[in-house]
Design a binder for these strands. Structure first.
Lengths: 156, 156
DNA sequence: AAAGCCAACGAATTAAATTCGCTGGCCTTT
DNA sequence: AAAGGCCAGCGAATTTAATTCGTTGGCTTT
């Protein structure tokens, strides 16, 4: 028999609650899933231990923190060798301005999401940190005019 | 005199801690900022009340939850009137598959981030929910091959 | 049918958050 | 320059929540 690991409906319900608001009390969650405190507690700990929950974070308001500019940034690398790629990725991971980076199919290679105070500050990041990375062939910057939706909640 | 509102170095330090891990105890945070419990508590509550902290969430592991596919989706609307835009935006906000949507400068209009189980399930979303929205002129889908970096932490 | 297992339970304990009255330093006002 | 008021920080007391643990009942397995 395989190791017990599948999630049941209650686990999913708990995950849905926690991914929307992790500050609910155990009592609160227990009521919503119709269990008592201890099994609810056990389930949450199990979900954490098994890696279904990566962690708990506070979501900050970037506009109030003077980080009003978001830029989508398409980066193409020179295609010679794949070793360029891991070097590039390593740098990206260390830049706090980059809040996401994906390798995508299509014309360009990486799609970044960059947070800055303003255009000037973005330009500084662009010139001094991004454009100087070795093997960067092309970068194009798309400015975010309006943030329609942003959530960390997955469709469960 | 302006209403007291600026954040000092300790506030920023607290925000940095909370945006990385909201499960730290008050005692823990208090030690890190060199304050006692009560002022630390007061500051956190103030930061919440003033909207610097939008909320606290659990971050789930989408790969473990059978949501292995992420698609970047560029959507162009017909340009006649702006009323199309708000209708489109309203629908997007209601789709749980869409975890982010930005209005961007450049050739297309909206840039979406969509989460699905697999290509089949994405195609269902595409055909049945996205492509049928009124005034959608063009959609192109870029598949995420690798997730290099994803964080909710802002560069403070 | 008996044995073993697992999930749920409630009570007891421990730990954390919250409240509140007090204090000292700093700024304002005269 | 002195007095008064204000604000941030403090510690103790209280409330609330999380955690632990021994027990129970229902299912499955043999």
């Amino acid at each position: 028999m395989a190791i017990k690991s599948a999630l049941d409906a209650l686990d999913i319900k708990i995950l849905k609650i926690l991914q929307n608001n992790s500050q609910h009390t155990l009592k609160d969650i227990a009521e919503q899933v119709n269990l008592s405190l201890s099994p609810t507690h056990d389930r949450i700990k199990r979900l954490e231990m098994d890696g279904y929950i990566k962690g708990y974070v506070g979501i900050l308001n970037r506009k109030k923190l003077n980080l009003g500019l978001m830029v989508h940034c398409q980066v193409t690398l020179e295609k010679q060798n794949r070793s360029n790629f891991s070097e590039f990725e390593k740098s990206i991971k260390e830049f706090p301005e980059v809040i996401s980076c994906h390798l995508v199919s299509g014309n360009f290679d990486y799609y970044l999401n960059v947070i800055s105070e303003d255009v000037e500050s973005y330009n500084r990041f662009y010139q001094e940190k991004l454009a100087v990375l070795p093997s960067v062939a092309h970068i194009s910057s798309l400015f975010v005019m309006d943030e329609i939706k942003t959530t960390t909640s997955l469709p469960l």
